[in-house]
Design a protein around this nucleic acid. Structure first.
Lengths: 331, 331
DNA sequence: TCCATTTGTTGGAGCGCTCTAATGCTGTAA
DNA sequence: TTACAGCATTAGAGCGCTCCAACAAATGGA
């Protein structure tokens, strides 16, 4: 398993190590003849450059560190996909690890990523304190995804949750709904803007808001609906798709038809919402775009093209499926 | 952003670089006094070791490369989670990239991973030709997850698809079903054992098999059911959960009740199956365990504890929910 | 013709670390 | 006292590469 080095290739091709280095980096200032000889020797030896030695010597890194707070969440998978696409396009590699939504574990993960001296760091919805993020940002460019920050040294990419929920409310209002409840996501950093957006949208239509405490799970959605049974609204805007599916399930159990009796809107447009069995009207976030923008923000900093922080606030969009309809006019 | 080096720490602590190195590696042969001084200096400078320089000098790597064929698939997310758990437990870091289910892209991804000279490589359901895998295995230990191989140099971790489907068939037979159809997954490497398992299980019960061509999507499941309409079996074993949900949807559209008229069993026990709205009887694979075993297989090879290939075949288990019931006895 | 460029190639230093062998230093036995 | 462990510490080489300065050879005016 002793792998050939540049020296071996150089010896075989009858040139110097420096020349091999130039060929490997695709330098134009190498004669075609020598280039061919080097490439041939490399091929024969099965040589491939040693990324770590390269980055040590060049004092540059072609690695982007990514900390994913929770790999199980399909949301992040798509963000990583976007990151990966842009990164590989520019010859960068991704080092990924997970924080498991615990500050202590995230701090360790952060340290481990930094030990690779990455060109940049993307933190996906981290729960670690701002101070730690600031410290990391002193060492390498940092971009935060799905978490806002006022740190002047870090870039952020978020979705405009207020606008997303407003889209949902506007849609329901345009169908004729007036009694629209919001199943709230609770603590999470993404719940607050959604709640704000709901309240603002209701106010702008002159409607009375009704916020019901809930969580990001289908069980919580079902529970919240059961609490509504005595006085059911004609429409429900959930904090996310899972919550919405739980709500629908409880509604059907209680004898309500969706969407005839009650309309339901989710949030996130997960693959779940797209299933024909579910066919949920929901709000789509450009998740892949999150990743792309995050990677681009890092690369801009790496190339020194920008020093001021950038704050991306992406526009969500409404996806109408089969869980929303005009309300039944009470006689 | 010029980060301190070992030399800086040594100077500040008034010792040699070699001593700092010993402290950083937790060597016992350092006096407590000096150790404290070094640690203090490191702390004050905000020093953390340079992982790449370290691995270059020591000619060892604490990195495991992971190629995920498709990050969108929640299946792999959980496998990675298992890998990550074992890896960090042993002080290893993960470098992850994706192949996008294209041989060309996977080959590039493989090359990029190998350029880090990882201690080992985990390939999750790769589509790249066996020859490429063998070549990678010449350079570093390789473990294949969700793909089998006869290569003597690689380890494999797979689920026992034959047994899993047999579990489903046995369950249905014990409920009294005799007309049980299988919605087949088609080409994929994981479909074949499931089909074999179905045929074997049906034969062992003396029942007539009925394999219907389908795919791993809900649309395909729905389509397959529509093809069955003239002559509906009393139970369906799908190739995976998505397919099963599509099947259920089409059954309900056609006026069949699930499970009263037709029972349906999925495969994979995705989070989808667990939703109360779906509540699908399905076959669970120990996904996290896949990752753990894969990581352990690599670490064994890294430590030179084993040279012969290991073939893990994990036992799936039946999860009974609400989509299976005894058939209605035709009068 | 000569000198100045340009072009292609190379030796050598050095990136931040580990590792081996050698060093100085104690304490203990002869 | 000398000799010799045994231990903590260090100098120095080297991991595989990049980069710079230097250089030889080819080119182009003047």
């Amino acid at each position: 398993m002793a792998r050939p080095t540049m020296e071996d290739v150089a010896a075989r091709a009858g040139v110097s190590r420096a020349l091999v280095s130039l060929v490997m980096r695709g330098s134009p200032k190498v004669s075609d003849q020598r280039r061919a000889a080097v490439l041939k020797a490399a091929e024969e030896l099965g040589y491939s450059p040693h990324a770590m030695a390269r980055s040590l010597a060049s004092r540059t890194s072609h690695v982007l560190g990514v900390m994913v707070s929770d790999l199980h969440n399909a949301f992040f998978a798509e963000v990583v996909d976007g990151l990966d696409a842009v990164a590989t396009e520019h010859g960068f590699d991704l080092i990924i690890n997970t924080g498991g939504r615990s500050p202590a574990r995230e701090r360790r993960a952060l340290r481990s990523l930094l030990s690779f001296r990455p060109a940049g760091l993307a933190l996906l919805s981290p729960v670690v304190p701002t101070a730690d993020i600031g410290r990391a940002a002193d060492q390498t460019p940092v971009v935060l995804v799905a978490r806002s920050s006022r740190l002047a040294t870090v870039d952020t990419v978020n979705d405009d949750g207020e606008r997303g929920i407003a889209l949902a409310v506007d849609h329901l209002v345009s169908l004729g709904h007036e009694r629209i409840a919001h199943l709230d996501g609770g603590e999470g950093s993404r719940a607050a803007p959604r709640r704000r957006g709901y309240l603002a949208a209701m106010a702008s239509h002159g409607l009375t808001p009704r916020v019901v405490a809930s969580e990001y799970t289908d069980a919580a959605g079902a529970r919240a609906v059961r609490g509504l049974l005595g006085d059911m609204p004609t429409a429900i805007v959930s904090c996310n798709d899972f919550n919405a599916v739980g709500a629908i399930s409880a509604l059907e159990d209680a004898g309500f038809r969706v969407p005839q009796d009650v309309s339901v809107v989710g949030y996130d447009n997960t693959s779940l919402a797209a299933l024909r069995h579910v066919s949920l009207t929901t709000i789509d976030q450009p998740r892949n775009e999150f990743g792309r923008l995050a990677a681009e923000a890092l690369l801009q900093r790496v190339r020194g093209e920008r020093a001021e922080p950038v704050r991306h606030l992406l526009h969500p969009s409404l996806v109408v499926r089969s869980t929303t309809a005009p309300p039944i006019r009470s006689a």
